[in-house]
C-alpha cells in the first residue's frame, strides 16, 4: 500500500507544484497510515522531495521522455502505481497533469476526481471535495474504486514541509512505440515572463484601461511585484492582449495568492475565474462596480492615477524590506 505522487519537472528541475503534490500526498498517506512514493521523470535532484514527505522516489531516466507525452507519461505512472500497490495516485492540475490523469484513471481502473481543493473529508468511504460549476460551487464526491486518482487544484493546498528520509530507486517502465504516436514538433513558449499558471500574484486589466497603449503602467506594476499579467475577455477579444491572458469562466482560472483587478467591472463570468484566488484587490473609478462585492480590498479611483502611485509605493516598500 502507498500513496503515489507524480512530480512534474522541467529541464530536470521540479516545478513548485511537484512539492505541493508531495505535501498533499503526505497528508493523505498519514490519514491512511501509509507512506508516499514519488515518481520523477528525468529529474536531477530527487532528494528535495524528502523535505515534503516522500519516503521513496522512483527515478525514471529515459531520453524519449524529455518532451512531455501524455500517453507515455500516463503509462509510467500507471506502472509505478501497480508496482507500489498504490491506493491513491496524486497528480497536479497543470496543463500536463490534466492531460495525463484521465489516461491513468482508465489504465488503473481508478475513479478520478479533478480539481480537488482539500485533503479527503474521510478515507472510508473515500470522499473528496473539488470545485465544480466553474468555481461557483464545490462537490463532495465519493470514489468507490480500490485505486483512486486525485487531480490537485493549483495552490489549493500549498507547500508543507515534513522532512522524512528518502530512498531512491531506478525504475524502467515498459514503453512501446505506440506510446509515442503523438510527437512534439516544436514548442513556442515565452521564457522571460511569469505565467498565470505559476504566478503567486496576478495583475489584470479590463476595458477601463481604454487601449493597449496603456498597458505599460500595468506591466510596470507586474514587474515590480514579480507578477503575471492577465486581462478580461473583451480585452483579448479586441486584440489588446493575447488570448492566453484571458481570465474567467471561458478563459483561464487564476488561483494566485493575490489578484489585482484594474478597470474590470466584475461580470459573473470574470469572477468565476478568480474565485479561487486568495486575496482580491479592485481598482475602479465606479464605486458601484460589482467587483467590489467580491473583493477584499478596494480603491475607488482613476486607474491612471492610482496604478503609477501604487507601483512607486511598492518599489519603496521593497527597497525598505530588501
Amino acid at each position: 500500500m502507498s500513496v503515489l505522487v507524480f512530480t512534474e519537472s522541467e529541464e530536470g528541475k521540479f516545478k513548485k507544484i511537484a512539492f505541493e503534490a508531495v505535501s498533499y500526498g503526505k497528508a493523505i498517506a498519514d490519514m491512511l497510515g501509509t507512506t508516499v512514493t514519488a515518481v520523477a521523470i528525468n529529474s536531477n535532484d530527487t532528494n528535495e522531495l524528502g523535505k515534503y514527505g516522500a519516503s521513496k522516489v522512483l527515478n525514471v531516466s529515459n531520453s524519449k521522455l524529455d518532451n512531455f507525452n501524455a500517453q507515455a507519461f500516463a503509462n509510467v505512472v500507471s506502472q509505478a502505481a501497480t508496482k507500489e500497490n498504490a491506493q491513491v495516485i496524486v497528480i497536479s492540475s497543470s496543463a500536463n497533469g490534466k492531460f495525463m490523469s484521465p489516461l491513468v484513471a482508465v489504465n488503473n481502473q481508478a475513479g478520478y476526481v479533478a480539481n480537488a481543493t482539500n485533503v479527503p473529508e474521510s478515507v472510508s468511504p473515500f470522499k473528496v471535495k473539488s470545485t465544480v460549476y466553474s468555481n461557483k460551487a464545490f462537490a463532495i464526491t465519493e470514489i468507490s474504486t480500490e485505486t483512486k486518482v486525485i487531480g490537485l487544484a493549483k495552490n489549493a493546498y500549498g507547500l508543507k514541509e515534513n522532512e522524512v528520509s528518502v530512498s531512491s530507486e531506478d525504475f524502467s517502465p515498459e514503453l512501446s512505440d505506440n506510446d509515442f504516436n503523438t510527437e512534439v514538433v516544436s514548442v513556442n513558449k515565452a521564457t522571460d515572463v511569469v505565467t498565470i499558471a505559476d504566478a503567486e500574484i496576478v495583475v489584470s486589466g479590463g476595458r477601463g484601461l481604454k487601449g493597449p497603449e496603456n498597458w505599460g503602467m500595468l506591466e510596470d506594476l507586474a514587474t515590480t511585484l514579480g507578477a503575471a499579467t492577465a486581462c478580461s475577455k473583451p480585452v483579448s477579444d479586441m486584440g489588446w492582449r493575447p488570448h492566453s491572458e484571458h481570465v474567467g469562466q471561458t478563459g483561464k482560472p487564476v488561483s494566485s495568492n493575490l489578484y489585482i483587478a484594474i478597470g474590470i467591472s466584475g461580470a459573473i463570468q470574470h469572477l468565476a475565474g478568480v474565485n479561487s484566488s486568495k486575496v482580491k484587490v479592485v481598482i475602479n473609478n465606479d464605486p458601484e462596480a460589482p467587483f467590489f462585492k467580491a473583493a477584499d480590498y478596494g480603491i475607488v479611483g482613476d486607474a491612471f492615477e492610482v496604478v503609477p502611485k501604487l507601483t512607486e509605493k511598492i518599489k519603496e516598500f521593497k527597497a525598505q524590506n530588501a
Binding site: 481508478a110 475513479g111 464545490f138 464526491t141 479592485v282 480590498y297
Partner: peptide, 25 residues
C-alpha cells in the same frame, strides 16, 4: 466509479475594505 454525495457553496465573503491611499493598501 464516483458519486457526488452533495454540493457546497463558497462561504459568503466579508465586506470589502475600501481604502483611500496606496500607502494604506
Amino acid at each position: 466509479n464516483t458519486t457526488t454525495v452533495n454540493f457546497e457553496k463558497p462561504a459568503p465573503k466579508g465586506a470589502v475594505k475600501l481604502v483611500d491611499t496606496v500607502e494604506e493598501l
